[in-house]
Amino acid sequence: MALALVLGLLTPSAGTAAAERPRDGRTADGGPRTADGGREEARLRALAERVVAAPNPNPGALLLARDGSHHSHGTAGVADRAAGTPMRRDLKFRAGSVTKTFTATVVLQLVAEHRLRLDDTVQRLLPDQVLPGNALSGPPVTVRQLLNHTSGLYDYIDGLLPHFRTLDQYWPREQLIGIGLAEPRYFPEPGTRFRYSNTNYLLLDLIVERLTDRDLRTNLERRIFAPLGLRDTSYPLAKTTIDGAHVHGYADVTPLLPDAPGATRYDVTGFSPSEAGASGALVTTADDLARFYRALLRGRLLPAHLLHRMLTDTVPTTGAAAPPAVGYGLGMYVYATDCGLAYGHGGSAPGYLTYVLNSRDGREQLVAHTNWNSFTDTGIDKDFWAAFQQGYCDPGTVKP
């Protein structure tokens, strides 16, 4: 079973509510408070409590909703079991594959700058990666096919387990790409169907570095983090600790470390983010994620024609796991919700699970996070989806 996939599946759990209370007629983050703001925060808190409800082992949950300029949130359970720290909306966490939208945005900015074309091939851009008998020695793979997961390239995550030694081991990008390219493609002809593969985004990382003479971290900081004021967002590849106040992530590590004490409730916060790289190494907060997606969807990061392509150059995601995605664009999922289509991404990192939903104009948003996942595919993540979809959808409302 794929290591990242099994690490990212949710098993919800027990905890106590710990929502921050608004003060002085304003929301907890200082935003304006509507007349029914207290009712909305109570609703979100109840949904978060549902995610951590007994008998499940999920430590904590967070829901952050934005409707125009109005913000509401609800939390439940704990961010740190050992210290008993309550879950809070301002705590940092590992965002997993939500990172892919950030990486894709940098790639599309290079397209806007005429330094790259979506139809450029990996073979032309990275000739040193084409070796006799490896996956790139076959039919050409384009940048577009890396972005929308139609390359067919083997997901290096599927081959990690034999190489695993410790939670904090450093994974060189070249090693991970080598694992992905050493195996046959999932299907021989690129562009014919969707198959999610983290190898795609490590190759995009390498392309960005070659074109700009700067690593992806520097590009993210200069192009996205600094312009948007994402002060709590970082891209730490070599660092296994999280700076500042943060959520601790928990998982059942029995398949990896069967002799670990408390293996079914193990703190995996120190799992090396180098295992994910450009496909999932981001550390951030719920507020920073909402700010990024709103800026992106409102055209602050990409010209209109490329933003349009990001959202509409989609491929069907038939067979993809819950939640119900109906398509994948250029680094962006299209989800089917009870109140219409939503745009965003899910993110699974060891010990963490995050989803972001947005209306097309970025006005309506929901960020949902929980700090537990299991090594077995229980399908319980559908309950998490059900809870935070309710946080996104007002009854009877169709999002723009």
Rank of each mutant, 00 (worst) to 15 (best):
L63R: 02
E20C: 12
D120Q: 15
R115Q: 07
R94A: 00
L131Y: 01
L7Q: 15
Y352P: 00
P400S: 04
A245W: 02
G191L: 07
T337L: 08
L108H: 06
L366G: 02
G229S: 07
Q365F: 12
A54M: 07
E364M: 11
L237Q: 01
Q123I: 02
V356C: 08
T378K: 09
A112Y: 05
L353H: 11
P324G: 06
Q145A: 08
R173F: 06
F187W: 02
R45N: 12
L237W: 00
L10D: 11
T142K: 03
R115Y: 14
A65Q: 15
D119I: 07
R66P: 11
T269I: 01
R33H: 14
G329E: 08
D155P: 02
Q365Y: 01
V367M: 02
T16I: 12
L302I: 05
T99Q: 10
L147K: 08
A19I: 10
R21E: 14
I207K: 09
F93R: 03
L204K: 00
G191Y: 01
Y392C: 06
D36A: 10
G351M: 13
E209Y: 04
S348W: 05
P190F: 00
L5S: 08
L230I: 03
D381Q: 11
R26H: 10
S72C: 14
L256D: 02
G191V: 05
Q109K: 10
E275N: 15
K100T: 07
L9N: 13
N134H: 13
D168R: 04
D361W: 07
G38M: 15
Q390K: 09
E275Q: 14
L211H: 03
T312K: 01
D29A: 10
G152D: 02
A325L: 03
D215I: 04
S374L: 09
R214M: 13
Y196G: 00
A76C: 13
G244Q: 03
